[in-house]
Design a protein around this nucleic acid. Sequence first.
DNA 1: ATGGTCGGCAACCGA
Length: 271
Amino acid sequence: MQIKLSTWNINSVRLRIDLVAKFLKSVRPDVLCLQETKCPDDAFPAKRFKRLGYEHVALNGQKGYHGVAVVSRLPLDAQAVKSYCGKIDCRHVGVTLGEKAKLRDPVTIHNYYVPAGGDEPDPAINPKFEHKLAFLDEMKACANLLPKRDERSIVVGDLNVAPLEHDVWSHKQMLRIVSHTPIECEKLTAAQQAGGWIDVARTFVPPSEKLYTWWSYRAQDWFTADRGRRLDHIWVSQALGDRLSSIKVTKDARGWERPSDHVPVTVTLEV
DNA sequence: ATGGTCGGCAACCGA
């Protein structure tokens, strides 16, 4: 059985629900993981998703800031949320596809929204950057991100770090810019390596090639300047490493009317 | 080198 899984930082799910619908109608993922929903759970547009065929939802939202959600065409066997750094911020929700989705062996999906970290890349003077580093350290030690042998799991989300040289438009000019500083890249890579995670996009697009999922709102012409970053990631555990079919970055979505600054990333895999 | 734009929600905070 093949499943398609997408991740997208939507930057307000209520404002951009029509763009989400447009994406779902064209790509038809089985599961969509959203970040920055900026929406309390009781205000989540679940009815609209249901009409689009996504009847099953797992929510961890809050008013105004952050917030993550999973919407699925397949029924969910389980869902759970975890908080990080002792904060109430809604930055994780996990779901399991199993018997109800007619999977012989279950697959767990963790959807993350890592703190952006503010502007100043010094934890001593910028509490937001300190929070980001602590969050990455906590991810590395978290059982969610330490799959056991043969365990089938997937991590997706806006991880707010572009870890490789060609994950940014200019490695040299980005070294002191939050999202590409060495300490963040090391911490994200450490979390990835601790769990033996496979960076799906980089198995299809070689590390020597530029690949972005985010373009700033502040650029006068995002497309021509093309000063992007790869902030949105899909990792799979070793047990799923030989089951990957394709990856797709829906770059078009950055040019849609009133876009998010992030675009969807989709993996297709055999489960 | 600097400032540039969004969204939530009603003055700024977070990105």
